[in-house]
């Protein structure tokens, strides 16, 4: 298998002695849509920083599309597009100038750059803002500008560090569609996010990092399969009794008309409904209490610590 990204034994110790990465091993296949998850300070941004040369590694190897960054970093960089977490462009420049400059830094002539700018600004809904200074853009527009900038040299690997932070729901959905589209066209996407449902809906594979170590690295499907129980919120038509027990099920009364039920893997949800009905309680609606991946994420981090 060809890998878009291969990381072996990656370590980073900062000047203040903080060991941010403790020998990370990670592989991302070409064409994958990969999520790198972890709590704040886990080492996600440090890992991305090393890959794109903003952080000097202490030990380990990193290869981008088979190119070792120690052997030929400029060639490795040509394969990479990076959308950082913080805005990092000159806000006094126009959208067009920011993109022309970035294209130029990759050796792309002005004529080609202008054609690509048309394409990406149109796809990201920024065409009308072409001559606008970046400081006049909304937060969501600035984030889309950073995506356009990262794609201007048409990299085969796109790394996005929290790309939808501060982006409204509608724009987030259109951004998801755009990312799916370029992934289907062959671009490998590596995503870090705090929105776990984002990872669940977009990504095929996932790595969870905590305290500078990879806690798990598997497919989203496998990860969710390991989930042993789910919590459902049930809304009742009738007022619930003060104490309510159903054999074989763990129930928690939330308020007069709402209760939570823990459903273990293999348990029959219809059995619960039936028993509640026998007690004169009819259920109006039912939903998951929280994102399943979030439950798994918390559980894995608890195990790791």
């Amino acid at each position: 298998m060809s890998y878009a990204l291969e990381i072996e034994g990656l370590e980073k110790v900062y000047a203040n002695g903080l060991q941010a990465l403790k020998g990370i091993d990670l592989r991302v296949a070409q064409g994958d849509f990969f999520a790198l998850l972890g709590p704040n300070g886990a080492g996600k941004s440090t890992t991305i920083g090393v890959i794109c040369s903003l952080v000097n590694k202490t030990a380990g190897t990193v290869r981008v599309n088979g190119v070792d960054i120690d052997a030929d970093f400029p060639r490795a960089k040509r394969h990479l597009g990076v959308v950082p977490q913080e805005f990092n462009f000159n806000v006094f420049e126009t959208v067009e100038d920011i993109l022309i400059h970035q294209a130029g830094y990759y050796g792309i002539p002005l004529k080609t750059a202008l054609e690509r700018i048309d394409t990406y600004l149109a796809k990201l809904g920024l065409l009308e803002k072409r001559k606008t200074r970046a400081r006049m853009l909304s937060g969501g527009m600035k984030r889309r500008l950073m995506i356009a900038r990262a794609l201007i040299h048409e990299p085969s690997v796109l790394i996005l560090d929290e790309p939808t932070a501060g982006v409204d729901i509608e724009m987030r959905r259109s951004m998801y569609d755009f990312l799916r589209e370029i992934n289907e066209a062959g671009t490998t996407i590596i995503l870090t996010t705090h929105y776990l449902e984002e990872a669940e809906s977009l990504c095929r594979n996932i790595a969870i990092i905590n305290h500078g170590e990879i806690v798990t690295n598997t497919s989203i499907k496998n990860l969710l399969r390991e989930l042993h129980c789910e919590t459902f919120i049930l809304d009742s038509r009738q007022a619930l009794p003060e104490t309510l027990t159903v054999d074989g099920f763990e129930l928690t009364r939330v308020d007069d008309y709402c209760l939570e039920a823990q459903i273990e893997q293999g348990q029959d949800l219809a059995e619960l409904m039936s028993q509640l009905h026998e007690r004169g309680i009819s259920i109006l609606s039912m939903r998951n209490r929280e994102n399943r991946l979030e439950q798994m994420f918390v559980s894995l981090l608890e195990q790791a610590s």
């Binding site: 040369s53 903003l54 950082p84 990092n88 462009f89 806000v91 400059h101 830094y105 990759y106 050796g107």
Partner: peptide
Amino acid sequence: GSKFNNSIEELLVSPT
């Protein structure tokens, strides 16, 4: 100025 607004990163991540 480029360092201050982090736009120097545009250059540093590029193969220039």
